[in-house]
Structure formats: C-alpha cells, structure tokens
C-alpha cells in the first residue's frame, strides 16, 4: 500500500484470460436473470390484502397443558405484521398467538397451549397490521 502499483500490472489491465470473460458473462446473466425475475414478479403481482390459511400440524400433551402446533400461511398478496391468531375450544377456553411477520406466500409456525384437551378447536386470525 505504500507505493501505488504500476497501472499496467493490475489484473484489470492485463490481457484477460478467457476464464475472466466466462465468469463475467455468467455473472452478467445471473444479474440480468434476477432483474428480470423481480420485474416479472412486480408486473404480475396482484394488489390484494393478506389472506391466511391455518393448518393444525400436531396436538401434543405437554406437562403444562395441550400444545396445538399450527402453521400459518399467508396466501394473500401483501405481507402482514403482528398477525394475531386465536384458538377457541367449545368449553370457552381461548388461547392467542402473535406472529411478528407473515410475508406473502410464506409460512410461520408456532403453538397454542390449552389447559384441557382441545376438542372442537376453532382457529381464526383476529387482527394484523401492515408493516
């Protein structure tokens, strides 16, 4: 770093090896593909609100109660934040769960815990915010 290297000796100014062009072309294609992908996604994107699909993965008996493991999928077009999921069993017991972010097309997992065996469990998203 003490001496400025000779300009002609820098790798950029030497006669390029064919591999440099191949790597360069491959990189250019990759970058263009990413731009094209983003552009196509942007143009085909619908502008609807978030929408949710809830699936129960598993119901496990833990020491503190019954764990209902759930997967929440955002099948809408927009990302939702602070998504509040509520589960209600017939007997009147409720349990709540909040997901920080559920991006469009993405899934998040978590669990609701109930004191008694959750027969007739009803799950619903009660609120969310736009990020």
């Amino acid at each position: 770093m003490s001496e400025e290297p000779q300009t002609e000796n820098l790798p950029v100014n030497r006669a390029p090896h064919p591999a440099e062009w191949i790597i360069g072309a491959a990189s250019a294609l990759g970058v263009l593909a990413l731009v094209a992908y983003l552009a196509v996604t942007a143009m085909t994107e619908a502008d609807g609100p978030p929408d949710f699909e809830i699936a129960i993965d598993d119901v496990l008996a833990g020491s503190g109660g019954w764990h209902v493991r759930v997967t929440l999928r955002n099948v809408g077009d927009k990302t939702a934040a602070d998504v509040m999921l509520r589960g209600e069993v017939g007997a009147g017991e409720t349990s709540e769960l909040t997901f920080d972010y559920v991006p469009a097309g993405s899934t998040r997992r978590g669990a609701l815990v109930f004191a008694r065996e959750p027969d007739g469990l009803e799950l619903s998203v009660r609120s969310y915010t736009d990020p």
Binding site: P16, E20, W21, G24, S27, A28
Partner: peptide
Amino acid sequence: LLRFTLPGYA
C-alpha cells in the same frame, strides 16, 4: 464492468 464488477456483485 463485465470482468470485475459484475462477478463481484454476483
């Protein structure tokens, strides 16, 4: 750009 910058970005 082709030989250095774009591979760098990739």
